[in-house]
Nucleic acid binder design. Structure first.
Lengths: 112, 112
DNA sequence: CCCATAGTTCGGAACTTCGGAACTAACGGA
DNA sequence: TCCGTTAGTTCCGAAGTTCCGAACTATGGG
């Protein structure tokens, strides 16, 4: 399989990041990959809350995140490992990802 | 004219904000409204860079920003005043708007 | 070599976005 | 009051995007 396309960090565009994370489902996937020590198989992510995401949808969500420059994907045997590019992106756009993930967290936990 | 719909700040959702600002044209409009002391007529915004935005598109961009909770619009005579809800949104999602506007600014001014 | 597992691609239905033409709202002048 | 002008909105068709099931490809194990 040919290596997957990943944009160089300097080609990463804010609109692509915002678009990728403007879907709560993709935001959740990205938050998981980022929190889970930066490694996770695609299918480990397929149940989000109580909703099962079809394989084809999951695959295209992952693709959107990858092409936005948010994650890095590589095959290991039969499965895929997804690494968060959080640190790189944070160096380019300081505070952006943290603010976005916090905003989603604030929404779902309307805390006390 | 019936008053325009504006979501209460606690109903503002991160996905709506990200979606609204994931369009560079809307992000530019929002940045202008926010920078310009929070007041500006619609048409004052219609030339973005070297591109003229058709009235109908501008109107729907403004509507998206308004319904996402990012701006507040009211008619004053024949024209519209658009106020940024930046401060309110920042209280709800700290740092989010600043990080997004900085990210766009970093893109267009790849400094030094 | 065949099977199982993990992920991708294809394609059509449903939804969104764009923008021109026609419409509505508010004001000013005669 | 009526007309003209300016400012925005609505409508609607074309173009583009998203969703997801079915079929496909890639990898490893027996």
């Amino acid at each position: 399989m040919r290596p997957l396309f990943h944009p160089a960090i300097e080609d990463v565009q804010p609109e692509a990041i915002l678009h990728a994370l403007s879907d709560p489902c993709r935001a959740t996937i990205f938050a998981r990959i980022t929190r889970a020590g930066c490694v996770e198989a695609c299918s480990a992510v397929s149940a989000l809350g109580d909703r099962v995401i079809p394989k084809s949808s999951l695959s295209s969500h992952i693709k959107v995140l990858r092409e936005a420059g948010l994650i890095r994907c590589e095959r290991h045997g039969v499965e895929m490992r997804n690494h968060s590019r959080c640190a790189e992106v944070d160096a380019r756009f300081p505070g952006l990802l943290a603010a976005i993930l916090n905003a989603y967290a604030a929404r779902s936990a309307p805390g006390a």
